[in-house]
Nucleic acid binder design. Structure first.
Lengths: 317, 317
DNA sequence: TAGAACTATTGCTTTTTTCTATTGCAGGCA
DNA sequence: TGCCTGCAATAGAAAAAAGCAATAGTTCTA
């Protein structure tokens, strides 16, 4: 099947595509011209795809050939990268991967990052650093961190963001709270009682996203208690400061419990983030192997109706 | 250099890694055992990387070998995908790519998507459909669209989001507006005058993000004019309804102009989005070749100070 | 100490890749 | 028309490689 398409052939495709000429491509590859002809014909027949159009004016790519050319470039580059990384690993030269961890992230995401990294780069050290999201973004910009695990949203185009977890957001309350007696909390029951929040300074974008979601269901919370960590949040809820919203996955103290909010399908989202120009040798390979977020939840906006059928434009690309 | 690592060798690596045994791997590959031994030894010596550890209990991977194994699996899978796509193209069987376009996106992103698609899949048709973000997300869920270009943020873990553009947000005003006489607009000058917004119904998340950013600089706007398209926004600004915030890249009518906001570095972000389980044959290949967002801007939060140096934990992975 | 379960080595065969020489084809030009 | 020229394709031989069977070398196990 696709076994004919070896890397050797990919190199041939690239050379021919770039010289538009079998003869010159063969020179560039230090091969005789008939070799190229034969090999390419055998490939085209073997996989059943015409790759080149041979014309007097030069050799051009068919549509399928264009795609193969783009693939070939990428695949050859990646292979070099991988072999370099393998050599570095073999010599024990992989530098420490410095990862920033925010609190308020899915705890499993740290675990799965470490698993993926350990699987790919066993014996290579990871250094984990705690910190607030804004701090971690700063440190990635100044290159004192290679990557971080952060709560979404992360804005700015310089970040490569890879969504790794999405968990329901639930109301955290004392186990003896009257609300604990029902399965779900009604939004109206939250009004006036939702008071414990994470410190907006530590992640303004996420804080405001939360506020906007609350406004949508008609709650304007007074954030009178600001916590820096999930443990602080629990402590504040325990001391009757008010209710809080937390990630369903976070383990709760024994006298606390949590309930979902009726009708709301909010999530707490965690992402693996690195700077677009970060240069740790493992990053690009690691990123391809991070497990992806799995939850099936979509945040539904209340009260919107299905709009008119949109206009269809047919364009030939 | 890396030329020794042909796809054939990748298959050998996978088979040996998965059987933990050269003899059984050779059976699985329908080869004689000495062939495998030889080939792998030649590879290991050739690229200078030890891949396997041969022990009595079985063959195991070195750290570098683990990474090569992970790479091999992925590369072999991708090659099959690419060859299948090439065959489909050769037979003219690539189905139409149905892309949803929201208004309020960077116009260049449509252009660059079409360029990338045309380069990869020449002659394959694209069908562009206009619509509001919520509508487009719905249509992707029900599989009547393959992908969409949307303004960020997009929430929910089912979406594969690829950030493609990030442009400064500026204040749009009449050319004869007094504010047009200075280079920048002070946030205080916006108060009470910022009135034209896109309709929150069309993209609630983006609307609220904008509101939250305005609140940060102390502006609580009355959104008295709600527009469905950038053209409507311009029309409203022309008719003296108020000022608006728009993407710097959008072409303005001749009697309009725009100015940046002093101190704010907000951006309008555009992403290429598709459903995690979308199955158009071109998507995964297209995604790898989309040009990435380039802007160097990070949204800076006002008034935060650098926090204490965080604790460092050293973990051996 | 023999055997079992491996991988590595050896020497030979087959297959694949590449080479040189040549053919064939289509324009350009006298 | 006829003769170059610039190119890709074909043919047949040579070189390189991948593969094979037989066997040697280990190390644990009975």
């Amino acid at each position: 099947m696709s076994d004919l398409l070896e890397f050797r052939l990919l190199k041939f495709i690239v050379a021919i595509a770039e010289t538009a000429n079998f003869t010159r491509a063969s020179e560039r590859l230090f091969l005789a011209q008939p070799t190229l002809s034969q090999q390419v014909i055998a490939l085209e027949e073997g996989i059943g795809v015409q790759i080149f159009v041979r014309r007097r004016e030069g050799v051009s790519l068919t549509p399928a050939g264009q795609m193969l050319y783009a693939y070939a470039q990428e695949a050859l580059e990646l292979r070099d990268e991988v072999v370099s990384a393998a050599r570095a690993m073999d010599r024990g030269e992989i530098p420490v991967l410095r990862v920033g961890l925010s609190s308020f992230i899915n705890p499993d995401s740290v675990q799965s990052l470490r698993q993926a990294y350990t699987r790919l780069f066993p014996d290579s050290p990871i250094q984990m650093t705690g910190g607030h999201p804004v701090q971690l973004l700063d440190r990635m910009e100044e290159r004192s961190l290679d990557a971080a695990i952060l709560p979404l949203p992360v804005s700015g185009a310089n970040w490569v963001v890879s969504h790794v977890a999405s968990d329901p957001l639930v109301v955290c309350m004392r186990a003896d709270d009257p609300l604990a007696s029902s399965r779900e909390v009604q939004p109206s029951e939250l009004a006036g009682r939702l008071k414990v929040f994470r410190d907006p300074e530590t992640h303004p974008a996420a804080h405001h996203r939360l506020m906007e979601m609350l406004l949508e269901i008609g709650i304007r919370p007074e954030a009178s208690c600001l916590a820096a960590t999930p443990a602080d949040i629990q402590m504040m809820v325990q001391s009757r400061c008010g209710l809080a919203l937390i990630d369903e996955r976070i383990a709760l103290a024994s006298d606390l419990t949590s309930r979902p909010i009726a009708g709301a399908r909010w999530t707490s989202d965690t992402a693996f983030v690195h700077h677009r120009s970060a240069n740790h040798i493992a990053l690009s390979i690691l990123l391809r192997h991070l497990p992806k977020a799995k939850q099936t939840q979509t945040r539904r906006m209340p009260g919107r109706q299905r709009a008119l059928k949109p206009i269809q434009l047919e364009l030939m690309a």
